[in-house]
Design a protein around this nucleic acid. Structure first.
Length: 478
DNA sequence: TGAAATGTTGGGGCG
DNA sequence: ACGCCCCAACATTTC
């Protein structure tokens, strides 16, 4: 009756299965207070709008899952560190259980908090639930973080061991007396006036939605993953990124499921390995951000500090709004705005366009993605933008400039992806859909396309812009 | 996880 | 038969 409770602090581990901190909290045999503190700067940076949309639904799913197990989610809001200290004080909790966050600011906060609590006789217990390996655990023989992906990928799968898989607990013993908290509605995470999220309805945030997404992927996409993952006109990707970001599923579960399918002969082994390589890129980003905390704000290769980025508000606006006149770029930017997600191949194309064709600083793109993506993640977002810019670790060279026309023709050959997201071009035949300005006037007229009227003319000439970018690169070497 | 320029090769037309 | 040209296809280099 006088059992002191323990606190389970949910953060980026919004699931009940495969949750080591939860399992450990339950094993104490004490009442478990399941808490979520809404701190918009939980990972050190104000949460983007699309992420907030996702969090809203994921928290509701988690709260419902807890209710079904005799527990409930205690929601509070404010500075995470302060609120946890208050909660510990209020509940006289003996222990704090959490799964670690690896963003440098969050890591430092958690370390500080653990120290503070220790001084009050409260023990903090940290676990890993979100990355395949603890950042820093997989390193070179010299003890350095890997700066090249391929050897990192090899070492990761060589050294990291799968986490024990755990079913969600049937029952969670809650606190003896009811806890006060706030309603998820009051967090106002869902957009209002205007509600721009009407196109987000294909997503099912939460643990159950994550497991459905994994099953869909294993059944329908894994067998052709390595080729189809590059095709925005197909459902060839896993679409697991937001689920992974919020910790609704364990990356080890994903990797193991894919390899099990390969071992069972259901899919070629190479396909499963391709998926594992993508999980390893996520992991590579996490360990890079840990080793280089300024990855989201500073060029990893400081030679890029000399790059003469253009100040071009009109160009940036055309890019964000999907009005560049390059159909594959505009389709991607509109898909992002409408659904909170963009196909990975198209992310590379639009990023190359912003950085190289428009010669706009990659940080502008990083910021836009941060606000618009449901899978916005400090590590992946920073690493991938720097990868395209050429300023990152093991990055694509700057002179690798995507041609938005040939990329479109190669990866969206019939133009179906463009037609879906740029409906004003829908009637244009495949021959012209990726370069409408070269279409004969008769064809444009027949398709109801008026360049500069119903659809913009290209805001830059690619060949000219390409040379401008290469000149800008040369100038940094002077 | 590129593109474009440049270089090389080989088949076919043709004098 | 042979050399020459053209040019597509492929390979290499450069950014």
């Amino acid at each position: 009756m006088t059992d002191r409770p323990v606190i389970l602090w949910f953060r980026r581990d919004l699931r009940l299965g495969d949750n080591p901190a939860l399992a450990a909290a339950i094993e104490t045999g004490r009442p478990v207070i399941a808490a979520y503190i809404h701190d918009p700067k939980l990972d050190g940076r104000a949460m983007g709008g699309a992420s907030a949309w996702w969090l809203d639904k994921s928290l509701r799913a988690l709260a419902a899952d807890l209710s079904g197990r005799g527990s409930s989610l205690v929601v509070r809001a404010g500075d995470a560190e302060t609120e946890i200290e208050k909660l510990v004080e209020e509940t006289k909790a003996s222990d704090l259980f959490l799964n670690r966050m690896f963003e440098p600011i969050a890591w430092a906060r958690d370390a500080r908090l653990a120290e503070t609590l220790k001084g009050r006789g409260v023990q903090a217990h940290g676990f890993n639930a979100t990355s395949l390996a603890t950042p820093g655990a997989v390193c070179t023989q010299a003890g350095e973080p890997f700066k090249v992906f391929t050897p990192f990928n090899r070492a990761l799968w060589d050294q990291a061991r799968p986490r024990q898989s755990r079913c969600a607990p049937d029952h969670i013993r809650g606190p003896d007396s009811p806890m006060t908290g706030i309603n998820i509605d009051s967090l106002a995470l869902h957009p209002r006036r205007p509600d721009w999220s009407t196109g987000f309805s294909d997503w099912t945030p939460g643990e159950a939605g994550a497991l459905v997404a994994l099953d869909r992927f294993l059944d329908q996409a894994l067998a052709d993953y390595s080729g189809d993952r590059d095709r925005p006109d197909r459902e060839g990707t896993s679409r697991l990124s937001p689920h992974l970001h919020f910790g609704e599923i364990d990356p080890w579960r994903v990797a193991t499921a894919a390899r099990t399918a390969a071992e069972g002969g259901e899919v070629p082994y190479a396909q499963a390995e391709k998926l594992c390589a993508e999980l390893a890129w996520r992991e590579f980003s996490i360990q890079l951000l840990t080793a280089f905390p300024t990855l989201a704000s500073e060029n990893y290769k400081n030679g890029f500090d000399r790059m003469a980025w253009r100040d071009d508000p009109a160009g940036l606006a055309a890019w964000t709004q999907g009005r560049t006149g390059y159909p594959i770029v505009d389709a991607g930017m509109r898909q992002l705005w409408a659904t909170g997600w963009m196909h990975n191949r198209v992310r590379m194309i639009v990023a190359s366009f912003l950085i190289k064709d428009l010669l706009i600083d990659w940080r502008e793109g990083e910021r836009w993605f941060w606000d618009c993506l449901v899978d916005a993640d400090a590590a992946s977002n920073a690493q991938n933008w720097q990868w395209v810019a050429g300023s990152g670790a093991d990055a694509s060279p700057f002179f690798r400039i995507f041609n938005p026309i040939t990329q479109g023709e190669k990866f969206d050959p019939r133009g179906d992806y463009v037609r879906r997201w740029v409906p004003e071009l829908a009637a244009l035949p495949a021959d012209w859909i990726h370069r409408p300005w070269t279409a004969p006037p008769m064809e444009l007229a027949a398709a109801g396309v008026g360049l500069g009227e119903t659809y913009p003319a290209p805001i830059v000439d690619h060949a000219t812009a390409r040379n401008r970018a290469l000149d800008a690169l040369k100038a940094t070497r002077g």
